[in-house]
């Protein structure tokens, strides 16, 4: 009787040995996989979705595609920023029109902190176009938590701190290390050119304007660079800088 029971148990184990071993293999695979996995993205709990972003965030996580959805949010923020034709120097009205800009910019940062050109661009818009220094600094500090070695963020943070202190020479010094990078936003290059103009270093400003014309796809900044080159040509012929008063506010 006992022998029969033993044989029954043995045949049961034999019959199910393949699925049992396979299940153990699956679990072992998971152990190996999880022990070698380090996420380069902020945890899901930091995403802080709004009613506007929740469906897209869910898709980003479900498809394992935070990068693509950060790209989509960049397109959305560019459309949002372009909805009103407010140029630099109208910071107070921009605050009202772009009330969601900071939150949207932060959302890109939360989705993909390694998207340096987009994150630097949004931080620079907040600081240099909207004069929202605190927001820009918060954004960059958050980014540096996940990308501590990212020069774009450290240098932009440094330049914002100098701008707050009203020290244009130091702003220039802190921006310089990143403007030669191919993905440096045209906005930052333009600010650098203006700072050079303020310092009277026309040749340096000229080089940056030429770089913007050759490399940027942003029509506004290409037009500004062409204008800038015309201004510098006029200055070299003895005329005063036409935007001198604007430059003094930098």
């Amino acid at each position: 009787m006992e022998e029969n029971e033993k044989q029954k148990n043995f045949s049961l184990i034999k019959n199910y040995s393949i699925p049992i071993i396979s299940m153990i293999m699956l679990l072992a695979g998971n152990y190996i996989a999880n022990s070698s996995y380090v996420s380069s993205f902020p945890p899901i709990t930091e995403l802080n979705p709004t009613s506007l972003s929740a469906p897209l965030d869910m898709a980003a996580i479900a498809l394992g595609s935070r990068r693509v959805f950060a790209d989509i949010w960049l397109i959305r923020i560019l459309i949002y920023y372009g909805k009103e034709n407010i140029g630099e120097g109208h910071a107070s009205s921009a605050d009202e029109v772009y009330s969601e800009f900071y939150e949207r910019a932060f959302h890109i940062a939360r989705l993909d902190p390694s998207f340096r050109s987009a994150n630097t661009l949004t931080a620079a818009i907040l600081a240099f176009n909207m004069s929202q220094y605190e927001d820009a600094e918060n954004l960059l500090k958050y980014l540096l938590k996940y990308q501590p070695k990212q020069r774009f963020y450290t240098q932009t943070l440094l330049s914002i701190a100098q701008k707050k202190k009203g020290n244009p020479e130091a702003v220039l010094e802190s921006i310089l290390p990143i403007i030669r990078e191919p993905d440096c936003p045209a906005l930052i290059k333009n600010v650098t050119a203006l700072l050079y103009r303020r310092a009277g270093q026309w040749q340096e400003a000229e080089k940056i304007y030429i770089d913007i014309i050759n490399s940027s796809k942003e029509k506004d900044y290409v037009e500004k660079a062409i204008e800038g080159l015309k201004d510098i040509a006029a200055i070299k012929s003895g005329y005063p800088d036409p935007i001198l008063s604007e430059l003094q506010n930098l």
Partner: peptide, 30 residues
């Protein structure tokens, strides 16, 4: 229970310097 497929999302991580690890490859084969 569920396999971690983010290990193979190199379109997300490769640029940031996270290539496919040997552990991930072994896990896929297992």
């Amino acid at each position: 229970i569920f396999p971690n497929l983010n290990l193979y999302s190199l379109r997300e991580t490769a640029e940031a310097g996270f290539p496919l690890s040997i552990g991930a490859l072994a896990a896929a084969l297992i």
